[in-house]
Amino acid sequence: MAVDAATVRKVALLARIAIPEESLEPMAREIDGIMSWIDQLNEVDTDGVEPMTSAVAMTLPLREDVVTDGAVVEKVVANAPKTIDGFFVVPKVVE
């Protein structure tokens, strides 16, 4: 099995999602099932095929360097779980 409990543990840490120890194994089985189904992609010959990263054949539009936004502190922190003096207050980060 390609996706095992250890893989799920590692991926869950990267994704910052707590998964109880006892759920790692069932989750691994489930994801492994999906990945095995996805593996049928290997039947497709994609040699020399340019990966398609966007659905539109267009290039990136550019905007002028003008200040059109900002100065909306109340809107920025309107939904904050905790805020003081315009700052977001978040759990203590220890560096």
Binding site: R16, I17, F88, V93
Partner: peptide, 17 residues
Amino acid sequence: MRYGLRAEGANLTEIYE
């Protein structure tokens, strides 16, 4: 951090998780 649900945790990583 900026909106929505924030759960408890012993450290930052746990709070995220």
